[in-house]
Computed example of a mutant assay.
Amino acid sequence: MIRFIFIQNVLGKTRMAKYYVPYEDAEKHKIEYEVHRLVSSRNSKFANTVEYRTHKLVYRKYAGLYFTLCVDVDDNELACLELIHLFVEVLDHYFNYVKEIHLVYNFHKVFVILDELVLSGEPQETSKKVILERLRSFEKLE
């Protein structure tokens, strides 16, 4: 199960955070700081997973943004990396090469895309084509 998903820039500013388990606000800020410190300080030669408290972080850096999932220890790291990559591919296709500015000014669309991918902490849809078709139908409704 996915505990939370973050998109953070290299300076540690959280651009998107989605929690699937309840945390206090003070705890959320502490978690965001700790996760960025852990992920950004790791050498690129190491694997994209690291233990965090009683869970594990699976992360990937794309163009100055860290995409991080916190999952249970027994979850498959490769499946998590694939989910991150799918998320980035859908964002790239939707925004025509996603940049940090897209995340800031279109955060509501980013959350819609994420909700199409993950529901209640579990992967929901893994087809890029299906997700993009749903997004097009949402745009027609607007």
Results as ranks from 00 to 15, higher is better:
Phe46Cys: 01
Asn48Phe: 01
Leu117Thr: 04
Leu83Asn: 00
Lys99Trp: 05
Ser120Leu: 12
Glu51Lys: 14
Tyr66Arg: 11
Phe4Arg: 14
Glu34His: 00
Ala63Gln: 04
Glu139Cys: 01
Asp75Leu: 04
Thr54Glu: 13
Lys61Tyr: 02
Leu119Cys: 07
Leu83Trp: 07
Leu141Arg: 09
Leu103Asp: 00
Ile7Val: 15
Val118Arg: 02
Phe95Cys: 09
His29Glu: 12
Tyr97Leu: 06
Ala63Lys: 08
Lys56Phe: 07
Met16Trp: 00
Thr126Asp: 03
Asn9Pro: 14
Gly12Val: 08
Leu141Pro: 00
Tyr19Gly: 12
Val118His: 01
Val21Leu: 13
Ala26Gly: 03
Asp74Phe: 06
Leu11Thr: 13
Glu34Ser: 04
Arg15Gly: 05
Val21Ile: 05
Leu141Asn: 08
Asn76Val: 08
Ile31Asp: 12
Glu24Tyr: 04
Lys30Ile: 12
Val112Cys: 13
Arg42Ala: 04
Lys140Glu: 08
Tyr105Val: 13
Arg134Thr: 06
Glu133Tyr: 11
Glu34Trp: 01
Ile101Arg: 11
Gln124Asn: 15
Arg15Glu: 08
Cys70Ile: 03
Cys80Lys: 03
Lys18Asn: 02
Glu51Trp: 06
Asn48Ser: 10
Ser40Val: 11
Val112Phe: 07
Leu69Lys: 03
His85Ser: 15
Leu119Pro: 00
Ser127Val: 04
Val50His: 08
Asp115Glu: 12
